[in-house]
Design a protein around this nucleic acid. Structure first.
Lengths: 125, 125
DNA sequence: GCGCAGGTTGACGTTAACGTAAAGGTAAGC
DNA sequence: GCTTACCTTTACGTTAACGTCAACCTGCGC
């Protein structure tokens, strides 16, 4: 299970460019191993990339996605640091729940709009 | 109920700059009435602005929000046009439902992360 | 008439998130 | 040895979504 991926493997799989992947590394979101110059992506790297792309679909900036990646392992065994991390997680959760409410509102509005469209079409003879 | 708002009324209410509001007009998302040079925003304009800002919170571009605004009144009484509009509405709905799934996944992952944090903190003595 | 709080139109600056091109290293196949 | 397919770094270009002046008009209170 310690398969490695090349940069173009990941680019193909997620339908992005290698340039984008290197850019994420530049921004500190990825840090793949190297064999010489060449990047070797682990399964964990692939998961991080998935997180980044999901973040993008939700409208997060790369910086925000980076923060979320940082939530994935407690890392530091220092209590106040852990407390801060927990706080961040809770805030992120609140934001996601708010986003769900926005989506529900927009879904309802689209429902209305569709109804008006259907009516306009049908009353169009 | 035909109250009008000044540009800074709306800017204050939604905590954005007047520059942003004018920018949305530049991009064709708003078209307030005028008294001389001065813009006068109707209740409908305010609703459109709300749509724009909700779109932003969901990660939409201004262009996409503009499309959604365009869905709000069938306008054209021409059937193929209405059909296309209905299609767009349905696609937008699919996208929103997909986004909700992404949110649910991320929420579950945050739940995990929080559990690990709590454990790390508590096992920290 | 004067200041002031609001409004207006340019026009240039800025940031994020890459795109795109240049110039080159490397291993595989013929 | 040459091409081909990848990989690398460096660097400048681009787009969206405004921010930030500058220079100006305009009605109101005094």
């Amino acid at each position: 299970m310690d398969k490695v991926y090349s940069i173009s493997d990941l680019a193909r799989e997620f339908d992005i460019t290698t340039r984008a992947i290197r850019f994420y590394e530049d921004k500190g979101l990825l840090a793949p191993a190297r064999r010489g110059q060449t990047r070797l992506y682990s399964h964990a790297d692939r998961v991080k990339l998935k997180l980044i792309l999901r973040g993008k679909r939700l409208g997060l900036s790369l910086e925000e996605s980076g923060e979320i990646i940082g939530m994935y392992d407690p890392g530091s065994n220092n209590v106040p640091q852990l407390e801060r991390l927990i706080g961040k997680i809770q805030e992120r959760r609140r934001a996601l729940l708010a986003q769900k409410r926005d989506i529900d509102i927009m879904l309802a509005e689209l429902e209305d709009a569709e109804a008006r469209c259907l009516e306009a079409r049908d009353s169009c003879q």
